[in-house]
Amino acid sequence: MSKILIIEDDLSIGEMMSIYLYEDGYEVKRAENGRRGVALFRDFQPDVIVLDLMLPDMDGMQLCTTIRQTSHIPILMVSAKNEVSDRVKGLQTGADDYLCKPFSMRELSARIQALLRRSNAFPSALGPTDEINAGNITLDLEKRCLYVGGKNIETTFSEFEIMKLFWQNQGRVYNREELLNRVRGFDSQVTERAIDVHIANLRKKIEIDPKEPRHIKTVWGVGYKFLPI
């Protein structure tokens, strides 16, 4: 049974999400503020976090950053803020998906299913224990770790999934829709602009000069590809 942690200060919305997801077969715990959310994150060890952007004691972006310092757990951010800039900022902070209020419980469940499906999948001829190297970059599939020059580089769930896909299919060009389907499945309504954000973040983490990338190359008018050298 997958475990879902909901961090939401609105009692009615939080209770509604908890009941619906419980009836969907998940083990659910809910926190009404960021401090309680951090405690449950450590004790409950959830498989997915549903995180409200506006919390009474801390900003949801701040909490997302805190969680990302120690975990790659999929994070679904929910908020009444629906501007593109808000969604982009959420993804840049470390969220793997962004759902605007009001939303249906059915869509919430679909988004969670997509995140769980991606986090549990290893659709490749490579086994999950394989470690792959390209110059000073190493990808450990079993530990879900990315190393650059021997240093462990923190990545979000979606960033790692994109990197894994690139690595297992070096030189192949992927368009934004293909990459979006990879990291979130077909249930997400998030704009393909999210992929550009993840690519920009990955370049900052693995490239010597993100403005002149050697590894993650743009194929103009098509998408992106990964080159080991």
Results as ranks from 00 to 15, higher is better:
Gly34Pro: 05
Gly34Arg: 01
Gly34Asn: 04
Gly34Ile: 02
Val38Gly: 11
Leu40Gln: 11
Arg42Cys: 12
Phe44Lys: 12
Gln45Asp: 08
Asp47Glu: 00
Ile49Trp: 07
Val50Met: 03
Leu53Arg: 06
Leu55Asn: 00
Leu55Tyr: 00
Met58Asn: 04
Gly60Gln: 09
Met61Cys: 08
Met61Tyr: 15
Gln62Gly: 02
Leu63Cys: 00
Thr65Ala: 13
Arg68Glu: 14
Gln69Ile: 03
Thr70Arg: 06
Ser71Gln: 12
His72Lys: 13
His72Val: 10
Pro74Val: 08
Ile75Asp: 03
Met77Gly: 09
Met77His: 08
Lys81Met: 08
Asn82Pro: 03
Glu83His: 13
Asp86Tyr: 14
Arg87Met: 15
Arg87Pro: 09
Tyr98Pro: 03
Lys101Gly: 00
Met105Val: 08
Met105Arg: 11
Met105Gly: 14
Arg106Tyr: 13
Arg106Pro: 10
Leu108Gly: 05
Arg111Cys: 07
Ile112Val: 06
Ile112Trp: 07
Gln113Glu: 08
Ala114Gln: 02
Ala114Ile: 00
Leu115Ser: 00
Leu116Tyr: 05
Asn120Pro: 06
Ala121Asn: 15
Pro123Asn: 12
Pro123Glu: 13
Ala125Phe: 14
Ala125Gly: 14
Gly127Cys: 09
Pro128Lys: 12
Thr129Glu: 15
Asp130Leu: 07
Asp130Pro: 07
